[in-house]
């Protein structure tokens, strides 16, 4: 550990603003894109389910 206290860690020797800005933006973007693909995958599967459901219902209706 390079820092004596938590306050020192956050201050980053006076460069806290820059360091945390860079790390914050990077983390936010990485987490954001990970969330985006998870939501996207869920939505796509949901849509597929919906389409499959409609198709089976239509085909069963046409048979009767």
């Amino acid at each position: 550990m390079q820092f004596e206290s938590m306050a020192e860690f956050f201050a980053m020797g006076g460069h806290g603003l820059y360091v945390w800005l860079a790390y914050g933006a990077t983390c936010a973007a990485l987490v954001g894109s990970a969330l985006a693909v998870r939501i996207g995958a869920k939505r796509q599967i949901q849509q597929l389910k919906l389409a499959a459901f409609h198709q089976t219902r239509c085909s069963s209706e046409s048979q009767t």
Partner: peptide, 16 residues
């Protein structure tokens, strides 16, 4: 962020 040594010229901004 916490364990790497700081740069002797740039200090902690080096961690970027």
């Amino acid at each position: 962020l916490a364990f790497a040594p700081a740069d002797y010229q740039q200090g902690n901004s080096f961690r970027i």
